[in-house]
Amino acid sequence: MVPLNWYLMLSAAVFMIGVFGFLTRRNIIIMFMSVELMLNAVNISLVAFSHYLQDLRGQILVIFIITVAAAEAAIGLAIIIALFRNKDTVHADEMSEMKG
């Protein structure tokens, strides 16, 4: 039997790789893929909890997370297309209109 902590460590590792990609990549599309990576890491830990605590509510939550991830991908990619049409670039460090 694989201990639950292994799954949590795997989830933490994948989540942190996603955080690293989001913080450091210049390409906005890769940044979005890093967000998907983080959502997947959370899904792994939720399914593992659901199995080890013998409760299906974790998997219900996973279904909702996948729904929200699909919506987020559609909206985010539409925003990227609109940005590319106006600015001709997908690099995050070249967009400074908001002076952030």
């Binding site: 729904t67 699909a70 919506a71 987020e72 559609a74 909206i75 539409a78 609109a82």
Partner: peptide, 16 residues
């Protein structure tokens, strides 16, 4: 969740 998906459909079309 169905409402979220509806918003995503309309929002993606309007934005792109």
């Amino acid at each position: 969740a169905s409402l979220v998906l509806l918003v995503a459909i309309i929002g993606a079309i309007v934005l792109a």
